[in-house]
Amino acid sequence: MKERVVTMTKQITLAPVRQDELNTIKKELQEAFIKGLQDSFMDAENPKEMGPLPSDEDYEHSLNAKDSIVRQIMQDGKRIGGVVLQVNEKTGRNEVDFLYTLSSAHGKGIGTKAWLAIEAAFPETKVWELHTPYFEKRNIHFYVNKCGFKIVEFYHRGNPKPDMEGEEPESDEEYEFFRFEKVMTKESSDL
């Protein structure tokens, strides 16, 4: 699947990430995910004590996957977010491992424009898939109401994510994720 470089507006673009920028992307991603956790659980004293989210291991696993593509989301030449994708050229079934924007970019429609840029950059995609924790209401709203995803599965202890089978989590929350899909059609790409 050939990636197209697409500018959705004069302001939002996807750009390759240099090797020396990967740690900065990881740090920004982890800060954005911790902020989401704090927003969801206001009574949590210090969510950073839980360790980085995603874990360093999960981030490295995604980066080193065979079909991994990492892009930074740019606005007027400045990075405001990033995305780690798994793009399978044979099946056209692609996955969003991580997508984030800096908190300074929230509430301005930038995430939606970034998602449209991702779709435009990978036009041969047949299905997009992603996972998000059950408590991430902001993410659920974004993917369902702004980007056109459908929730197709709920993972929990009785129905664990395939990559968690056989693991014993510390809490039920570690198992509880939604799986989303967006089947691409002509209409869905015109959002």
Score class of each variant (00 low, 15 high):
F98H: 00
V96D: 03
L99F: 11
P169N: 08
Y134K: 08
K48P: 01
Y59W: 04
L53R: 01
K161A: 15
Y59K: 05
V127I: 13
R157P: 05
D76H: 09
I80C: 06
H61T: 15
K126I: 11
S68P: 05
E167T: 15
V152L: 08
H156S: 08
F135E: 05
D56Y: 13
K137A: 13
G166Q: 14
I73L: 04
G77W: 15
A120V: 08
G111T: 08
R138Q: 07
V84C: 04
V83M: 05
N88P: 03
G92I: 10
L116W: 13
N159L: 14
S62A: 15
T101S: 07
L102P: 02
E57L: 15
Y134R: 02
V152N: 05
N64F: 12
S62Y: 03
K150G: 07
Q72G: 09
Q72L: 06
V84G: 01
S68E: 10
P169H: 07
E124W: 10
G51A: 00
T125C: 05
F135Q: 02
Y155A: 11
E165K: 15
P54E: 04
K66M: 14
G158I: 12
K137H: 13
F154D: 05
P160S: 02
G109R: 10
D97P: 01
V127R: 08
I73G: 03
A117W: 01
F135G: 03
N94M: 05
H141A: 13
E170I: 11
H106Y: 10
F154S: 13
L53P: 03
L116T: 11
E124H: 12
L85P: 02
Q72H: 10
H61P: 02
N159S: 11
E95H: 12
L116E: 09
A120R: 02
G77S: 09
R79L: 03
G81S: 05
F135N: 01
E167M: 14
K146P: 08
N159M: 09
G158M: 14
V84F: 01
P160Q: 10
L102T: 02
V127P: 01
E129G: 06
I69Y: 06
P47I: 14
F149T: 01
P54K: 08
D58R: 15
V83H: 02
R138L: 00
L116S: 04
N139L: 02
S62V: 12
S62C: 13
G77R: 14
I118Q: 00
H61E: 11
I110R: 01
P133M: 14
N64P: 01
L130K: 11
